[in-house]
Design a protein around this nucleic acid. Structure first.
Lengths: 187, 187
DNA sequence: TTGCTCCTCACGTCACGTGAGGTGGC
DNA sequence: TTGCTCCTCACGTCACGTGAGGTGGC
């Protein structure tokens, strides 16, 4: 039977020896054979498994998820993949927001001097200066979310927040309207 | 003068206490005052600095880069920001490529069974099976890059590689045509 | 005196990279 | 015998989170 040593396998897949050592340590890819002197020998089955691992890895799934996918039934794999697809979607919009922000900073630096700061912090400070406290802000979010959810979302995004943070604030806003404003952190 | 303790400052900015402890440890934000008993006290100047840090952090600049920016002259800051903008650009295209890949996997799983594998590995194996060796592949890249750089790029991207990897291979291809094919790793 | 906040280690995370120090195989 | 490859620790990375064990301030 044809087998491969660790570095040879690495070269076949453009991976380093330490990567394969790591995969072995975490149990993601354990060579089927060990020689008497402890050398790892990878069989064709191992090569096939690594093939799959590499495919999945290029979607930046975590090694943990990859392990689960390979262990699960074929028909059950869609869930993880779909979840990852959604995550990638929001990562992309996060990055786009950051692009926007950086673009504005660059322009700001050219024409004036300091980086632009019209963001969450400044907004919160403005409200506070205007005399609003924690509870006020909480209620204001809750009302905004209730009356105009889409606009609320757009507004939060415009302050440079990521999708995830925006979602959290919105969920929390929906709770706080029914519960009455009990604030626990500075939003 | 008005000062803030660490947790209070954290609440003001939506950061955890450990985050601020960490910023102190790495010297990014050192409180201007320490009480006799060791308590950190942050002045308004510190608050302003943290303001800038938070703005920059939301562009996912590394804390290291943020430190450099704050230490550098205003007019010298553009470089770092532009570099980060470019990075974000290629991160976005990487993610889009991954989206594509995952999409195809999902469809593949629905209609057939195994995840799609027509990627870099398979391509390389096909060439090898066809009798091409390291040196042959090296030369082939070099020629491709020389004759049709755009098409070469598109082709590499179509195999699911990220922008960075593609750039590396192309640079290396340009060298290898003049230098004559001395290969050192499995591309 | 009771809580609450503060302090300083020190270890864990994720996917490896990078030695150090030593052995096997052609 | 000389290189090359292999082995196993163990520590570093990045931006924190999470205790443990102890002290200050109202």
């Amino acid at each position: 039977m044809k087998t491969h040593t660790i570095s040879k396998l690495g070269r076949m897949f453009g991976l380093s020896r330490s990567t394969l050592l790591y995969y072995d340590r975490i149990g993601l890819l354990t060579p089927s054979v060990r020689t008497e002197s402890g050398y790892r020998l990878y069989t064709e089955d191992d090569v096939e498994r690594l093939q799959r691992i590499c495919s999945l890895r290029r979607t930046s799934l975590s090694l943990n998820d990859i392990g689960s996918i390979l262990a699960s039934e074929t028909h059950a794999r869609g869930g993880v993949v779909e979840k990852r697809l959604q995550e990638i979607g929001s990562e992309i919009s996060d990055l786009k927001a950051k692009q926007e922000l950086l673009g504005r900073m660059l322009k700001g630096m050219a024409s004036y001097e300091a980086p632009v700061n019209v963001d969450k912090q400044m907004w919160v400070e403005m409200l506070r200066t205007a005399g609003m406290d924690e509870q006020g802000i909480t209620l204001w979010h809750a009302e905004f979310e209730h009356r105009a959810p889409e606009a609320h979302r757009d507004f939060l995004l415009s302050l440079g927040m990521g999708e995830k943070e925006v979602d959290l604030i919105r969920q929390w806003s929906r709770k706080n309207r029914t519960a009455g404003g009990t604030a626990q952190n500075g939003r």
